Simulated assay, not measured.
Amino acid sequence: MKQISSRFSIAVHILSLIAVSSKDCTGDFIAGSVNTNPVIIRRIMGMLKKAGLVDVRPGVGGATLLKELDEITLLDVYRAVEVIEEGQLFNFHDEPNPDCPVGRNIEAALRSELDAAQSAMEQRLAQVSLSRLIAQFE
């Protein structure tokens, strides 16, 4: 089963750490907290920067948030780091048998249900700000 990649939870971890840390949040410092390779952190930080969520100071090191904690939702983070083909969270298998009553109808029958599920997930993520999340572990 294919899962949503760990980029999402790592990105939330990065933003939360920047928000609560009194230290300069360098790539190495963040990598130590996430317990992963600094290369992965730099890649995700680049995605967050491109989305306008963080500013990264090269050389000197350190990152800062570009928005207030209550202005950043989990949906913002999800959209910044998840690459979903054509906006579809769920994929369908290729070329089911058109001569089979299930094969020729499964995608049309299932598509609206999966679109609704994706919409529900995105609505839930949009309701949770980074400040609300951080309040749970402070």
Score class of each variant (00 low, 15 high):
Gly87Cys: 14
Asp24Lys: 15
Ile106Thr: 01
Ile41Asn: 01
Thr26Val: 09
Phe29Glu: 08
Ala135Pro: 11
Arg124Tyr: 06
Ala31Ser: 12
Asn35Thr: 08
Glu113Val: 03
Ile30Tyr: 00
Pro101Asp: 13
Val128Ala: 02
Ile44Trp: 12
Gln123Phe: 04
Ala120Trp: 03
Ala117Ser: 01
Ser21Met: 07
Gly87Phe: 14
Leu48Arg: 08
Leu69Gly: 02
Ile134Ser: 15
Asp55Val: 09
Leu125Ser: 01
Leu110Gln: 03
Ser129Lys: 02
Arg124Phe: 08
Asp76Phe: 05
Val60Ser: 01
Ile84Cys: 05
Gly52Leu: 11
Glu113Asn: 08
Glu86Pro: 00
Ala19Gly: 03
Ala109Gln: 04
Glu138Phe: 01
Gly32Glu: 15
Lys23Met: 11
Leu133Asn: 11
Val60Cys: 06
Arg42Ser: 07
Asn91Cys: 01
Ser6Pro: 11
Val54Cys: 01
Gly52Arg: 10
Gln118Trp: 07
Phe90Pro: 09
Leu125Pro: 00
Pro58Arg: 13
Ser119Glu: 14
Ser112Val: 01
Val39Asn: 09
Val83His: 14
Arg43His: 15
Phe8Asn: 00
Val54Gln: 00
Gly61Met: 09
Lys49Ile: 02
Gly62Leu: 14
Leu15Lys: 09
Ser6Gln: 10
Ile14Gly: 02
Asn97Ile: 06
Ala117Arg: 03
Ser9Arg: 02
Asp94Thr: 14
Glu71Ser: 10
His13Pro: 03
Thr26Tyr: 09
Gly59Lys: 05
Met1Arg: 05
Leu48Ser: 07
Asn91Ala: 04
Gln136Glu: 09
Gln3Tyr: 11
